[in-house]
Design a protein around this nucleic acid. Structure first.
Lengths: 358, 358
DNA sequence: CGACCGGCGGCAAGCGGTTGCCATCTGTTG
DNA sequence: CAACAGATGGCAACCGCTTGCCGCCGGTCG
């Protein structure tokens, strides 16, 4: 490499892309001046800068991002880690993040964890040294691992709270309150939560908020799980619910809810007449299934955008409040998978009533 | 920057991550030896290498990918350009690509074009200098623009053929033949194609193959469009079909097909009794809608994987056959959105029969 | 009218690895 | 035993850009 020829682009054959040195030579200035002409507006005389820009354009000069990143550390790269690209939830977040990143002149580097802690850490470890910030969407890593990366790069975590790390979380309390109220208004007195992955913070939080809201409203709650956050997981859950499912179930997310409905229906149950099902996230298929799924909707795209903006702000030296800030508003999208509870006369004759006290 | 302090990590405070120089000093060798110990196995004595590795581990040394990329150009980054992350089709491709990339020690840099030529070119232009290869999935760029990037980096394009650029295309001819045969077997004598974006190569090809297959089978075909490749696009298409839609329609992709069904049903038509609908891609929602969508399925994930592998091979200096190679097999997933054509007695009394001759 | 100052360019030392070439050293070969 | 080849490690020149510091120059101030 040390002996690579460096002739002045003989015979017009652009053997190698031009560097600032080529531009400098052609413009009759020093390389440092060229550098400044591009990255330090105002630092060089306007006329000179213009000339340099002109020469650069003629030569087809393009700054080498690698070379400029080496001394400065600015790679213009952001890591976005998702637990499963295949989940439509992330498509929205990615879209939002991508858009905001592009606007800020950044490029996003996507890491798919495949729901695996290992893959996630490995990938992140590879990416960390070259990115300027990290967005953890639906991470399965431990709090300490997250804090570790946050120590190295501006980091924002989505839908999870980690001490000392900025985060953007949805208003789970509100969401679950809405769900419970909706269900209560439809005469439901008990509901069961179908849990997602244990490693998911959102799962824990949703379950907790659901319990609280239910207690407030005087509904009984139960929990079953954990299950994979997929349609298959939901189908699995359906069998776990047994032959006599509850009258209302709240699923960890839409995919689980959909799988659940599918399996329930396949088993001869009817939704929503016998069983009301509520999902979470409002992914596109939620409005496509029959019955259309009642679900909690969150501003996913906005969340992706805001996450990038937060990282960008931190990169620019903002203080970066570490708290969760104000949770993002959610709303309940009522569709056809929930209905008034069927009159209890016909319901579970086999179970004793003693556990119903409250 | 020139005067940044460089003390020997006094007081155990890891002020700056260790470099090969630190390792070299600690191990009593030259920096070049450290470099080789890591990147040129066998070049240094096994014992020395081991000692260096040990010292490096103790110091917590990690190679700086930026620094090593500067002289060599190996960034371990791959650009994956999709026209719309929000389309589930790409989720599968991304998943396949991500997995293969991780296996090859590469990281994927995702570019979302938002169905915009501009965004796509801009993003790619930013990314190109730092990636080692490019995968264009559903690009909207011009052939010449594609060839341009292929000239700069190993490139593979998905579902599109561009002279002199390696590509991975699905067997559209087979797919459409299957579709036509299926429809013909169900007494359909005419069908209309609902087109996707004009800039889409796949759209053009599918339409062409459909026409050919239909001609072969003696079916009449029509085309309407273009429409955006989304559910909304499909809904739009439904109104374009007018009050008396054809008995069979083949949509550019599943999203269009779904939008179409939705709108058709909303307008009081019944699918598949009145109208058979066929989609393309077999995205998840296809099996969720009612009726479940008959569609052409392609091995998306495999396609993503193979694309990465092809780029990796090219990077490693493989000759990279530039042809499209053998098209990827597809199959027709028959579900409930297609049915035997209703007996023609009741059909379109208003139209003359003269055009039916063939 | 000399000291001072701001504007503008240039110099050169990095950033952290990589690698061609060379010097040693050791074990072979004739 | 001398010539030689292979193994091994070091030197130093890059990769292309950034930036602290300095010097020069013309203008301003006291």
């Amino acid at each position: 490499m040390a002996d690579r020829k460096r002739e002045p682009a003989a015979r017009d054959v652009p053997s190698r892309p031009p560097t600032i040195y080529d531009v400098a030579a052609a413009a009759g200035v020093a390389a440092s001046t060229v550098s400044r002409a591009f990255s330090r507006p105002g630092r060089v005389n306007a006329a000179t800068a213009e000339r340099i820009r002109q020469v650069a354009a003629d030569l087809g000069y393009r700054m080498n991002p690698l070379a400029s990143a080496l001394p400065t550390g600015r790679t213009s790269l952001l890591a976005l880690v998702v637990s499963d690209v295949t989940n439509p939830v992330y498509a929205e977040i990615i879209r939002g993040a991508e858009a905001a990143a592009a606007e800020a002149g950044l490029v996003v580097l996507l890491l798919d964890a495949h729901e695996s802690d290992r893959r996630e850490r490995d990938g992140l470890e590879r990416a960390l040294p070259i990115v300027e910030g990290v967005i953890l969407a639906g991470t399965r890593m431990s709090d300490s691992a997250i804090r570790m990366t946050a120590k190295q790069r501006p980091t924002v975590v989505l839908n999870r709270q980690v001490a000392d790390v900025p985060s953007l979380v949805q208003d789970n309390a509100l969401g679950m309150r809405l769900v419970v109220r909706h269900l209560a208004e439809h005469d439901h007195r008990a509901l069961t939560y179908v849990a997602g992955p244990e490693a998911s913070w959102a799962d824990g939080m949703r379950w907790r908020r659901l319990r609280e809201a239910a207690a407030e409203a005087g509904l009984r709650v139960q929990r079953t799980g954990p299950f994979p956050p997929t349609i298959a997981g939901g189908q699995e859950a359906a069998t776990a619910l047994g032959p006599e499912p509850p009258t209302a179930v709240v699923a960890y997310n839409d995919q689980v809810a959909i799988g659940l409905m599918l399996a329930l229906q396949a088993a001869g149950h009817s939704v929503p007449e016998e069983i009301s099902v509520v999902g979470h996230d409002n992914i596109l298929p939620a409005q496509l299934v029959t019955p259309r799924l009642t679900t909690v909707a969150a501003p996913l795209r906005v969340q992706g955008r805001d996450a990038v903006n937060a990282v960008v702000a931190a990169r620019a030296g903002a203080p970066s409040r570490t708290g969760p800030g104000v949770p993002l508003p959610v709303r309940l999208v009522v569709r056809d998978s929930t209905a008034r509870r069927r009159h209890p006369l016909s319901a579970r004759p086999a179970r004793t009533a003693t556990t119903d006290a409250r």
